[in-house]
């Protein structure tokens, strides 16, 4: 079973992730944890010092963390973005698309299930900044290349 699924080459950060409140008092911390009600944009001034942002999903049905992840990536954050909490295998590919590159689910994944979920979608319809070229781009590439 997989307890930490990671799509990065660098060493995982060992420091515990602080809450947003205690993070703002500790100027040199490198890891922080966002709760659904926290504003991801409060972290934007600190992106250079951050190496890990954990985004907590207390319940899989609360999707605020997806927006938080995209906002951080759109602002140029290139550290580790980890989904923690009630993270289910059926959400993996969507979370990847929003910029998450590691997963520490409360209930560990079955590796085969995780692999199947991640390779499910041949293409994507939207540009989300994850580097995948959306279908509309592929269509018009194909046309201009004859």
């Amino acid at each position: 079973m997989v307890e930490l699924l990671r799509f990065r080459e660098d060493e995982p950060v060992a420091d515990p992730a602080l809450t947003v409140d205690s993070f703002s008092d500790q100027s040199n911390a490198s890891a922080v944890r966002l709760e659904p009600g926290d504003d991801a944009r409060d972290l934007l001034p600190f992106l250079d010092q951050l190496r890990l942002v954990e985004i907590n999903f207390p319940s899989f049905g609360d999707g605020r963390g997806y927006s938080a992840a995209r906002i951080l990536r759109e602002a140029g954050f290139d550290g580790e973005l980890r989904a923690v909490g009630d993270v289910l295998v059926d959400q993996l590919s969507y979370m990847r698309r929003c910029g998450f590159d590691s997963f520490a689910p409360e209930k560990p994944f079955n590796p085969a299930g995780a692999q199947a979920a991640l390779s499910r979608w041949p293409q994507v319809y939207q540009a989300t900044g994850d580097g995948r070229r959306p279908i509309w781009a592929l269509r018009h590439d194909a046309q201009s290349n004859g």
Binding site: G63, Y66, Y94, Y125
Partner: peptide, 13 residues
């Protein structure tokens, strides 16, 4: 329709 289908950010509104 295409934009909203499987939009990864908006599946748990």
């Amino acid at each position: 329709r295409q934009w909203s289908s499987f939009h990864p950010e908006f599946l748990a509104l």
